[in-house]
Design a protein around this nucleic acid. Structure first.
Lengths: 122, 122
DNA sequence: TGACAACATCCGGTTATCCGGTTATTAGAT
DNA sequence: ATCTAATAACCGGATAACCGGATGTTGTCA
């Protein structure tokens, strides 16, 4: 049952939980977005995203300079059911709603910038 | 979302996963049974069970010299849904079926012994 | 009371996880 | 070619998780 334990281990970190939540609310996000919304270092964001990537939770898609990540779990798989349960649990949490709002604002601000491609990740 | 992360952390250990599985297949088990079926040390069994106890996953019930544990999650709670999903995932795993068989044999052997209360945990 | 069985907790050692800071890579722009 | 932004990989260090063996506790029985 090692595999199953690892499945849960993926979800046993607050940062990764938040990443899942963001990715469930927007089908594709770049590292830059996640850094900004969660307020974490680049190193931390990238590390966790690569972790999820290597376990098959997400796929990456390069778009010029950015790396975009999106959830990729087979429909009906244990991972899929797990995520569905997770979204059910988190939806009722104010903290999760706040995060969702921050994501919206972040993306809106990004869209407004004249150069829509800018990330301002200083 | 610390609380949610900890929920998953409970399940992020193979030994605890097996314990959950056993407890889902038999409503009450003593430390001794779990030691025997999983083939782990007493210290290990007790430590994980106390861990689950303190997080509210199980309740304890002393019966003379033994300590019995049973699952105790509120129906409909996230924990409950999590366990239901877990049983769904594990049911199809041969490894889990084998464990279940070992549990049956262990309990049968225990029942056969003249002194039904004996544990022979040496 | 003493002996014993089941269990909990403590002790230390090992390993895994997580982190920030740094360096390396990649792709686009000049 | 060179410069820069975005990202990935690497490197200690701190912390937490996990373990077996030893010790303490509790309840039973003689």
């Amino acid at each position: 049952m090692k595999k199953e334990a690892q499945l849960f281990k993926s979800l046993a970190d607050e940062t990764r939980l938040k990443m899942f939540w963001l990715l469930m609310n927007r089908d594709e996000l770049c590292v830059c977005d996640i850094m900004g919304v969660l307020g974490i270092t680049q190193s931390k964001a990238s590390r966790h995203l690569r972790y999820l990537f290597h376990l098959g939770w997400v796929t990456d898609r390069r778009e010029g300079v950015w790396m975009n990540y999106r959830l990729s779990v087979a429909p009906g798989s244990p991972e899929d059911k797990q995520l569905k349960l997770l979204v059910e649990i988190l939806s009722s949490r104010p903290e999760a709603q706040a995060l969702k709002d921050r994501l919206e604002h972040w993306l809106a601000a990004k869209g407004q910038s004249k150069d829509a491609a800018a990330c301002q990740c200083s």
